[in-house]
Design a protein around this nucleic acid. Sequence first.
DNA 1: TTTAGCACTCGCTTATGATGAGTGCTAATA
DNA 2: TATTAGCACTCATCATAAGCGAGTGCTAAA
Lengths: 346, 346
Amino acid sequence: MIAMSNLNERKKCILRAVTDDYIDTAEPVGSRTIASRYKLGISSATIRNEMADLEESGYLYQPHTSAGRIPSDKGYRYYVDVLLEKEPITAQENTKIAQLAKLKKEAIEKLIRRSTKILAELTEYISVAVIPKHHQAVFKHLQLVSLDPHNILAIIVIDPGIVENKIIFTPKSFSPNELEQISSHLNSKLRGIKIEAIGSNIIREIKDSSIKAQGLLECLLELLEDRFKDPEHEMLICDGVLHLFEQPEFQDLDKTKLLLEMIEQRQTLANILSDLASSSGVKVSIGGENTKPELKELSLVTATYYLNGQSMGTIGVLGPTRMAYGRAITLVDEIAGVLSELMDSF
Amino acid sequence: MIAMSNLNERKKCILRAVTDDYIDTAEPVGSRTIASRYKLGISSATIRNEMADLEESGYLYQPHTSAGRIPSDKGYRYYVDVLLEKEPITAQENTKIAQLAKLKKEAIEKLIRRSTKILAELTEYISVAVIPKHHQAVFKHLQLVSLDPHNILAIIVIDPGIVENKIIFTPKSFSPNELEQISSHLNSKLRGIKIEAIGSNIIREIKDSSIKAQGLLECLLELLEDRFKDPEHEMLICDGVLHLFEQPEFQDLDKTKLLLEMIEQRQTLANILSDLASSSGVKVSIGGENTKPELKELSLVTATYYLNGQSMGTIGVLGPTRMAYGRAITLVDEIAGVLSELMDSF
DNA sequence: TTTAGCACTCGCTTATGATGAGTGCTAATA
DNA sequence: TATTAGCACTCATCATAAGCGAGTGCTAAA
């Protein structure tokens, strides 16, 4: 996976120039443009020759004869691995990110939502994040609140700041006192137990106890299962989809529709991001490097965020392969870092 | 506002035929098409004459000479008010709606989300709903859960099934017992009080009491205010935005982008829907009848849903003026009804 | 090894003409 | 008098063709 630096210095400069320019303009880049816009001290003819070489070795390609060059996936890869210099975060960006840090603590989900939103605003790409069902989720607290004689509101708190609630209908009515009893009983039985481990044995044990909570128990378990055992239920958060339409590569509605469908459908992206949650640092997948065909013309820049040192999920941006990788990488990295810090204090 | 039935029977038939056909095909409708596709027993020439009359009186227009006719807003209005016959709900639609009714009770917000989703699926238009800040919201229950020594999870239950939660950081740590005391004290003070009415006098009263809860109180009030006093915070729910792209009128990206921005921005739509919450029955706003310029080329079909007989919010669909009004009206009406029923049992 | 010069390629834009769906008007018809 | 057949006319749409220009590859000179 180590990128070979088998390009001489001049070729590197040209590849960088072509890529920078193409990222900027979205137009195929010609030799004259390079010669005039970037002061490389060589003529367009020389650049032409070098570009022909770069095309031969697969870093560039022409959309058609007599057009300028465009970086290939391989070209972008080289650009990202070898040519890219770190872009510092601007003051403006920092203020925006500081908004995130300044926020009063929220439940984790909201925190991630905000991060995703800010990331989308800063990069102007689609920003995505996933909160994986994490196997170390631990039951923390159950609260039953009587809404009226036949409806009970159940609130379940899972260890790292996740709250779920559901209204449960019961034919039999429970007094506040009974509810108190039931919930404190369940709390004592379940507190600290991993959600995954809440199985039939514990349930039976609870059922066998003196507490009469017909129906209630089943509903509560259903709630837990819905949220935590169903592998489908990885939560994908997504923001800035509209930015798509600002990119010239998505003017073609028919292709874009497929992409939008994938986003709306959520599952595909959720899986991809979850798979990335184990790796560390910023990861960049460029175009065809993605295995999913829907992403063959897109790039994904992601980073993992952590809770108390444990990998918790993935956050990143999704954009055209012609992506401002420098900015994207810097910002994704930064946001993931800030997010991790914020969550560490839970 | 009573539509004048000042059209003879034949003109009505033709207007209906043109409208039906245009809704179906999205193509301007010519006299020959009407003559052959709808058995009206008159020749295309006669239809041509009648259509010229209908154009003169503003029910139809031609996008350009030598094109077929398209219903104007006035034409659609007449169609909806006079010509439209009720469309029954199909068995298939009923099954889908039944899914909604069959669902285990959820907190109100989720219930509305699901309704919106189903409405979007059935109509294939954008479906929107609003949960207005309702002034009769009543404080029901507060629960404080200690997450760790310095973080407390506050859960606030508002009367009709709304749950809010927030994590509060406290420099001082509270024991579970203290939390229990604080929350039961607050509960006894606040239960049954309208959120609106929770003002400085009650706060002072609580503060003066023996309970030491520095910082906590302020955070809790902030939470309440965020959600219920801020007029900006009407919640707009939206589904099926992708259906937009299936309609030929939204192939033009530049125009559509404006619409998408309005939807993403939420506020405009939320206001419009809130304003509609007071009226009863199904309401149809066609194209230029909408005051907001963003909606001049769209139609909105809405109905109010109720909680215990009290108007609670608005749900409806947003689509091109060339909308299948019959289906849309029937479905919006039905969904709003089912939703109201489901909430009545809270 | 670099570069100036030049013929060549090919996508993009604009102009032109053919096509056909649909109209309005007129005159014949029931 | 109301309807309809017939016909000239309009105009968006589509395909074809011409011209433009950005950009190339190759050759020969520096």
